[in-house]
Lab assay of single mutants.
Amino acid sequence: MDTYKLILNGKTLKGETTTEAVDAATAEKVFKHYANEHGVHGHWTYDPETKTFTSTE
């Protein structure tokens, strides 16, 4: 398992979190669920070199 990072740049919520996942697709599902639960619906990007997802509203 690898550690993946999420950076949230929402209108009402900003911050970072991490998750352990078997691959990027699994981490993306976890992070999108997390963002949706916190009302963040933004544009998603992923940097495979740093294993970092960013959601920007």
Rank of each mutant, 00 (worst) to 15 (best):
G15Y: 15
A21V: 03
G42R: 03
T19Y: 12
T45D: 09
G42D: 04
Y34S: 01
A27I: 02
T12K: 10
T26L: 05
D2Q: 15
T17P: 01
E28S: 06
G15T: 15
F53T: 00
T54R: 07
T52V: 07
T45R: 07
K14C: 14
M1I: 09
T54M: 10
E20A: 10
E37S: 12
A24D: 04
T56H: 07
E16R: 07
T54I: 08
D2F: 14
G10V: 04
K5R: 14
S55T: 15
V40F: 15
T3P: 03
S55Y: 10
T50R: 06
A24V: 11
F31H: 01
V40Y: 12
G15W: 15
T56M: 07
N9G: 04
D47W: 05
T3Q: 08
G42C: 04
H41A: 11
T50L: 07
I7T: 04
E16G: 08
L6K: 01
T54K: 05
L8C: 09
K32E: 05
G15C: 15
E49M: 12
Y34W: 12
P48T: 07
T19M: 12
T17Y: 15
F31R: 00
K32W: 09
M1W: 13
A25R: 10
E57Y: 06
N9P: 02
D2Y: 14
H43M: 13
T17L: 15
T54D: 03
Y34A: 02
N36P: 02
K29D: 07
I7A: 03
V30K: 08
K29C: 10
Y34M: 05
D47N: 11
T45G: 06
N36K: 14
H33A: 15
G39M: 06
A25L: 10
Y34T: 02
H38V: 14
K29Q: 12
V22E: 12
D47M: 05
W44L: 08
K32G: 03
T19I: 15
F31C: 01
V40L: 09
F53L: 01
E20M: 14
K51R: 13
K29S: 10
H43T: 15
N36W: 14
E20S: 10
T17N: 05
L13Y: 15
T50Y: 05
V22S: 11
H38M: 15
E20Q: 14
K11L: 15
F31S: 00
T54C: 08
A35S: 04
K14H: 10
E28Y: 15
A21H: 01
N36I: 14
V30E: 08
G39K: 07
H41N: 13
V22D: 07
T3H: 07
H33L: 14
T18L: 08
A25T: 10
P48Y: 06
L8P: 00
P48E: 10
H38A: 12
W44G: 00
G10N: 04
E37H: 09
N36A: 15
N9Q: 09
L6G: 02
N9L: 13
V30T: 10
K51E: 01
T45A: 10
E28V: 05
H43G: 07
L13R: 06
L6R: 00
D47Y: 06
T52S: 04
L8A: 02
V30N: 06
Y34E: 02
E49S: 11
V22W: 12
I7S: 03
T17M: 15
T45Q: 09
P48C: 07
V22P: 15
T18W: 14
S55D: 05
L8E: 02
K5Q: 04
K14T: 11
T45N: 08
E20R: 14
S55W: 13
K29E: 10
T19L: 13
K5V: 09
H43E: 15
G39I: 04
D23S: 07
A35H: 02
T17D: 02
D47Q: 06
Y4A: 02
V30Q: 09
H33P: 02
L6W: 05
P48S: 10
T54Y: 13
V30F: 15
T3E: 08
K5G: 03
Y46D: 00
K11E: 10
T18S: 10
H38G: 04
